[in-house]
Amino acid sequence: MRAGIVGLGRMGRTHAENIVNNIPSIKLVAACSIFEEELIYAKENLLVEETYTDFESMIDNANLDLVLVVAGAEVRPSMVKYAIEKGVHTFAEKPLGLTISEIEEVVEVIEKNKDKTKFQLGFMRRFDEDYLYAKEIIDNGDIGEITYIRAYGIDPSSGLDTFVKFAKNSNSGGLYHDMSIHDIDVIRWLTGREFKRVWATGANFARPELDNVGELETGIAQAQLDNGIMVHLVAGRNAPHGYQVETEIMGTKGWLRIAPVPEKNMVTIFDNNGVKRHCSASFPERFKQAFINELSHFVKCIKENKEPKVTAYDGLIATKVALTCKKSLEENKIIEI
Rank of each mutant, 00 (worst) to 15 (best):
A235G: 15
I5L: 14
V198D: 13
V245N: 12
W255S: 14
K306R: 10
L316E: 03
A318H: 03
E209A: 11
I220G: 06
I149K: 03
S296N: 03
A259E: 14
W199H: 09
F55H: 10
V70P: 00
G315C: 15
A62K: 09
L190R: 02
V109C: 08
I258P: 13
E36Y: 07
A200P: 06
I181N: 05
I229E: 09
S57A: 14
G236F: 01
E85Y: 08
K276P: 03
A203T: 00
M266E: 15
L256I: 15
V88F: 12
T162I: 10
K94T: 04
A206T: 08
R125P: 02
A71H: 06
H278M: 13
H177P: 01
R13C: 12
E248L: 05
N332L: 02
I335F: 03
Y176R: 14
N293T: 01
K320L: 02
Y52K: 00
E37L: 01
G173T: 06
T147E: 15
I110K: 03
D183A: 15
I143E: 11
N45P: 02
C301D: 13
I269Q: 09
V106H: 08
R10C: 03
E285T: 00
K300A: 09
I181K: 04
E294L: 04
R207A: 14
D161F: 07
E49S: 14
T247W: 08
V109P: 01
F298K: 05
K114T: 09
R188E: 15
Y133S: 14
M179K: 10
I184N: 08
A259T: 13
Y52N: 02
S280W: 05
R10W: 07
M250R: 12
F91P: 05
G7D: 05
V267W: 01
K168G: 06
V80Q: 04
E136L: 00
E285I: 04
